[in-house]
């Protein structure tokens, strides 16, 4: 049989490779290792991370770099321009802006980051459960309905009333601010995650996971959430600045940080009048820091999103 012979000639057994060569080809990476490797290679994301680290470092050491404390008033030196004495100028009470800006960084960064983390945990869990349960039998529908109506109620309640209520019950301070912000803050994240999961859960890869017998927590954590990571990260990067501004509103009402203590939000608020007087540095530095924080978290978040996205493989 001529044909068989020629076929056999075409297929020759491959020479055996030395042991260990396969293992050398590519070390197997855990998910975490893959993510960090992709993240470190992303230059812009690393710029963002460096900025975040710098901002946090300055929040810790910044106020100690100048001989003025954030609350030292000196009316003779009110509204001073930037100088070698006062690197960021002074405010209307002659307080050193450099010291205040970095002292404010502590308050604002703590509030922004904790509000974002609480939103992340509560919002993603609740939204994930609601989205997955919707349309999954009578019981599932009921869970989705209850969660979504609860969210509507939280949206509908007048925020100011809730805040005043908290004022009555609790002492003003950072913890109260964080509670006031996260009491209703997570609902946006929850709705967003639910919407994405409604769209994702009927796609083939989820069906495949179900057919293979994956249980709900695994499908949610390993399949649905990683595919929602983009909007989650965008939402988080917005939560940080909006929490920073919300804090200034709460402080204005008397719920937030007390008078001499600075935060970026209250500094921006106090400096509103400079549009008329021209003492621009009083508005510029806190606003610049808020923008830098946002920028840093944005580019870092973008890199993180690429690194975590299961579809983008090296």
């Amino acid at each position: 049989m001529a044909v068989d012979q020629s076929v056999n000639e075409l297929f020759r057994p491959r020479a055996q490779k030395a042991d260990g060569q396969i293992a050398q080809m590519r070390p197997s990476l855990t998910h975490f290792q893959q993510v960090t490797r992709k993240l470190v290679r992303n230059k812009l994301a690393m710029v963002g991370l460096t900025l975040i680290v710098l901002l946090i470092a300055m929040a810790i050491i910044g106020p100690h770099l100048v001989p003025y404390s954030y609350s030292d008033q000196s009316l003779l030196n009110a509204n001073q321009k930037i100088s070698s004495e006062h690197w960021f100028g002074t405010d209307e009470l002659g307080r050193d802006m450099f010291s205040r800006t970095w002292y404010g960084a502590r308050i604002s960064l703590i509030i922004g980051i904790s509000a974002a983390l609480i939103d992340l945990v509560i919002g993603v869990t609740v939204g994930g459960i609601a989205g997955y349960m919707a349309g999954r039998g009578k019981k599932g529908d009921r869970i989705d309905t209850i969660i979504m109506r609860l969210i509507e109620v939280l949206y509908g309640l007048p925020y100011l009333l809730v805040v005043i209520m908290l004022m009555v019950v609790m002492e003003p301070g950072i913890v109260t601010i964080i509670i006031a912000l996260s009491a209703t803050g997570w609902v946006g994240m929850a709705r967003l995650v639910r919407g994405q999961i409604l769209q994702l859960k009927n796609q083939e890869f989820i069906m495949a996971a179900q057919v293979l017998g994956a249980k709900f927590p695994r499908i949610l954590l390993r399949h649905l959430i990683p595919n929602t990571i983009g909007v989650i990260i965008v939402n988080l990067t917005f939560t940080i600045p909006s929490a920073i501004f919300a804090e200034s509103f709460l402080s204005f009402l008397g719920l937030g940080v007390q008078a001499p203590i600075a935060s970026w939000g209250t500094m921006t608020n106090d400096a509103l009048g400079v549009i008329l007087t021209g003492d621009w540095w009083r508005l510029f530095f806190p606003a610049l820091m808020i923008s830098l924080t946002m920028f840093a978290f944005n580019v870092f978040g973008d890199g993180l999103q690429d690194a975590l996205d299961p579809r983008i493989r090296e």
Binding site: A134, G135, E152, G156, G195, L198, N202
Partner: peptide, 26 residues
């Protein structure tokens, strides 16, 4: 709240219109 609840309802309907894969009730 009335406006909000109504719009959220319309948005749930819009989900199904925009993406027919979305099913909100069993």
């Amino acid at each position: 709240s009335a406006i909000l609840v109504l719009i959220i309802f319309l948005i749930d309907l819009a989900y199904m219109f925009i993406d027919p894969r979305i099913k909100l009730s069993s």
